[in-house]
Amino acid sequence: MADIAVSRAGTVNGAGGRTSLHRLMQRKSTVAFLMALPLITVIVLLVVYPAIYSLHLATLNKSMERFVGFGNFTFLFGRETFWLVVKQSCIFAITAVVFKALIGFVVAHFVHNIPSKGQRKWRGMLLVPWVIPPAMSTLAWLWLFDPSYSAFNWILALFGIDPVPWTGDAYWARFSVILVNIWIGAPFFMIMYLAALKSVPEQLYEAAAIDGATWWQRIWYVTLPMMRNIIAITTLFSLIVTFANFDIVRVLTAGGPLDHTHVFATWAFRVGIEGGDIPLGASVSLFMVPILAVAAWFILRDITKRGNEA
């Protein structure tokens, strides 16, 4: 479009059509390429190269001198801790994402229900967990879960309930990790869903109300179909982030008690950086790739589909 305009200007000036236009086009694409060059450099050097390099690393032995093929992977398959980590990562990601999505959906509805004057204030308050750096808010949770001074246990004691070993017992520790994750992530869902709710035309609800739809029918037949795209994409995003999560587990339990809260990222850190076995750590983190790839594929499909519609 812009080129046509420029070429017209060119012919008016009588500078001679084809060759100068051609040169201009060439120059434009060169300029564009140069402008994108820093981005390409960053992506290639710091994302693509390490990603491929980790494939190579995963096939080396501990001292990184000898090629062992799939040796690291077969070693992992034989270890009980590895299967524990696989199980925990999946439970952790799926449970957390489901509850984040549910709570986000419910809270978004409540915020949407109240008069729009007060919505800003509530929205601002409810997004606070998302704004605080996760490492720091997890510290607050760690203190709330403290074995001897837990403020939650103090409240429970008022009702005569025995102290809960929040981070001491394997099952409670998993619960705590998931709870903190939900606490941090639910506001994000809330904000996304609220934006989506605002884009549903009010007439649809009016029409549904006139037709005598109950509130459940309104949600099922009007709200959910209208929000389907946002729900799908937010869930997939969150799945990626939750599955690859590191901060929360690291600060809250550091994988304990007895590796019963380790997920791929924290275990890869423990094995690769702290344990000094870089190839094994790389192999562990590579196990995140399949689920990430599936989620990414769905997201990309959705985005290109919407791009074609527009």
Partner: peptide, 21 residues
């Protein structure tokens, strides 16, 4: 598209190869 894909690659996948690099 590649830019978007790299956004989806988490840092937990990259820190070990970067460490070695």
């Amino acid at each position: 598209t590649g830019v978007f894909l790299t956004y989806l690659i988490p840092e937990t996948l990259l820190f070990i190869p970067l460490f070695k690099t």
